[in-house]
């Protein structure tokens, strides 16, 4: 555990909780892509199957359970409790265009051709692109609530901090994992455009809106 890893995890946790609270407090999931949230629930489910097979630490187990629990709670709020506020018309990204290629890639490029390992690889690849329906929705509506941009910033920051974590681990522990690193770079790059808008607009007190 190093400082980048810890702050990355906390940033991830903050993102998840910001989104849950935003939906809960406003009693609305307007502007939130339910498809991205389903993908994240799928990511956590397929990655944390090792909860049944290996124990790493109390921290590790607790965080996994919190992430999974919050992911499903978010999906429940969007598709059940506050379904009436869900903006399905603007959430029109075709997720099969992500899930099918990612599934194929995880079968082709993995560390070990075993079910758990392939599912772990699938989760890593899928996470890297799971935010695309949300970004697509924002580009379609041309705007995002400020609280939604805070969520996206924390979520993007998390993987960027993991990149520093992996550099740290490579130098000090000799660890590297090409699958996680390449996917993590892709994931972080997808947020770059958003990071720019966040810094130049949201942090200066303006609402995030895209030119028509």
């Amino acid at each position: 555990m190093n400082i980048f890893r810890l702050t990355g995890d906390l940033s991830h946790l903050a993102a998840i909780i910001i989104l849950l609270l935003k939906i809960w407090k406003s009693r609305s999931c307007a502007g939130i892509s339910g498809k991205s949230q389903i993908l994240f629930a799928l990511v956590f489910t397929t990655r944390y199957l090792d909860l049944f097979t290996s124990f790493i630490s109390l921290y590790n187990t607790c965080m996994k359970l919190i992430y999974i629990g919050c992911a499903y709670a978010t999906v429940y709020l969007i598709y059940a409790k506050f379904r009436a506020t869900y903006d399905g018309n603007h959430d029109s990204f075709r997720v099969e265009f992500l899930v099918v290629p990612v599934g194929g890639l995880s079968v082709l490029i993995n560390h070990d051709f075993s079910p758990l390992e392939i599912l772990w690889t699938f989760s890593i690849y899928l996470e890297s692109v799971a935010i695309l329906p949300q970004l697509f929705m924002i580009s379609k509506t041309g705007e995002a609530e400020t609280i939604t941009t805070h969520y996206l910033f924390c979520l993007g920051l998390y993987r960027a901090l993991y990149l520093f974590n992996w550099i740290w681990r490579f130098y000090f522990e000799g660890f590297f994992d090409m699958i996680a690193i390449v996917a993590g770079v892709v994931q972080t790059v997808l947020y770059c455009d958003f990071f720019y808008l966040y810094v130049t607009k949201v942090l200066k007190g303006k609402k995030l809106s895209l030119p028509a």
């Binding site: 890893r5 995890d9 991830h12 090792d50 290996s54 790493i56 630490s57 590790n60 965080m63 996994k64 992430y67 560390h111 070990d112 772990w120 993991y162 974590n165 681990r169 660890f175 590297f176 994992d177 090409m178 699958i179 996680a180």
Partner: peptide
């Protein structure tokens, strides 16, 4: 081949 990290990350 790829060297694999221990799966202690989230």
């Amino acid at each position: 081949a790829f060297k694999q990290m221990e799966k202690d990350e989230l």
